[in-house]
Design a binder for these strands. Structure first.
Lengths: 242, 242
DNA sequence: TTCAAAACATGACTTGCGTCATGTTTTATA
DNA sequence: TATAAAACATGACGCAAGTCATGTTTTGAA
């Protein structure tokens, strides 16, 4: 529940420079003319800390792909408490879902964690692509299926595990998905405060602070938001699934 | 965590009788030859209480559609506690997701709530359909998108709301999605014990019993598993979103 | 380098809900 | 319709985690 500036001025959309799109599965599926057409429809937009890519309730205009950086998907309840549903990494798709169909609105917000670069295309171009290319449609189905499984796994953990186990599971997940190996352990590449973590595991900031203190004592982790290091991922795994 | 029999003998698969498939969107999308081919690939299977349609960890062989009855999707954690992720109703698809891709296994179990009828087709036939028909693929994308949104809404509620609010939200959801209007209120069409509800809202049976007792005192609901009636859905809605 | 704002930390107290125990009512099936 | 098994109910108690309060450290921008 931190205050959010909204300087939406700094982001600029423009044509996508060719090349260096190698790590995005959906784009590699297509070839020849289909690929060219797709690239032609994509534009790039950049966002910085404190901005919103879109807000809960906004009309859905684009289909998005994360190119660089990390984006968090957030929902909040009537009394302003927030819950972070997912950290999107490069290659991740968003708004490929039903919100993009009919005249629906975004069911949640998307906020960058630091500087990010987003590729996007109009809904119309997106649907055209899906209609024209079964490969692209299958890729999206596969992607959505994985997201659904992830979401359900998260539901299970939230429903059945204690807060310390959920926090351990989060650290393991982030560590394995995006951690950078260093000599002291695995470093998380994005800034991540205790409050961020609390929103991700469905608990309060104070509780996360206490638990991280304990984890630090037990030599499982070290550091704070700007430099968070996982020192013993194996023991965290055990803690998560006990 | 109730004991489960496993008399898998009673279910029989066979050709699907034509007609009376009107209420299944995916089937109505197709026409002519595509539709005929699809119907030819579908078989029907029936299951009863206490059976499993499939279990967590089983290999994925089929794509499924609920034809009649209600199916629950369940996951459990290492110490045997269960969590119900979703109640599937007629027209719902399952295993359209990534589990069906590559050699993955089912991430959760599917159990009938009473007698159900399931349509299913082989993974191969399913993929063939998606490749051949962009309409079918788009329908599946739309369906998966909706499921993902639902799952994330559920995550939010689980993370941010109290147990009584989550229970109220469940009753509202089931009531509006599948309730039958009667003179005393809205009746839920499936047998639903306090334990079932507890597994759906991430709490214990005792807690649900207590809360349902309170709800009954407050004239919000009445009845037990076999005949559960929502008497004041508006006040339940208010309670859920406060 | 300064200095205000975030972020982190820790204690005290409260509470929602889990756990365990025991009893009653309802439901299925022989 | 008998009767065992589910399902429902209620109380007592404990604890994980929320809340509030106060203080320290770190961070980032001027």
């Amino acid at each position: 529940m931190s205050k959010q500036r909204n300087k939406s001025s700094s982001n600029r959309a423009g044509a996508v420079p060719q090349g260096q799109l190698a790590q995005i599965p959906l784009l590699n599926i297509l070839s020849g003319q289909d690929r060219q057409r797709l690239l032609h429809e994509l534009t790039e937009a950049r966002y910085g800390k404190g901005e919103f890519i879109f807000r809960e309730g906004d009309p859905t205009e684009y289909f998005h792909i994360v190119k660089e950086g990390t984006v968090k998907c957030v929902k909040s309840n009537p009394d302003g408490k927030e819950c972070t549903l997912k950290m999107l990494m490069p290659g991740d798709l968003f708004c490929c879902d039903a919100a993009a169909f009919d005249g629906a609105r975004h069911p949640g917000s998307a906020q960058p964690m630091g500087d990010v670069s987003i590729l996007r295309m109009s809904k119309k171009a997106y649907f055209d692509m899906l209609r024209r290319s079964p490969d692209a449609a299958l890729e999206v189905i596969k992607y959505l299926g994985n997201r659904l499984n992830e979401a359900q796994e998260k539901t299970k953990v939230l429903a059945l595990e204690r807060a310390d186990q959920r926090l351990a599971a989060l650290l393991v997940d982030l560590g394995t998905r995006s951690g950078i190996k260093e000599d002291q352990g695995i470093r998380l590449p994005m800034r991540l405060t205790r409050e961020d973590m609390a929103n991700m595991v469905g608990t309060t900031t104070e509780t996360v602070i206490r638990m991280m203190s304990r984890f630090k004592q037990d030599a499982l982790v070290t550091g704070t938001a700007n430099r968070l290091i996982i020192r013993d991922i194996e023991r965290l795994k055990k803690l998560a699934s006990t």
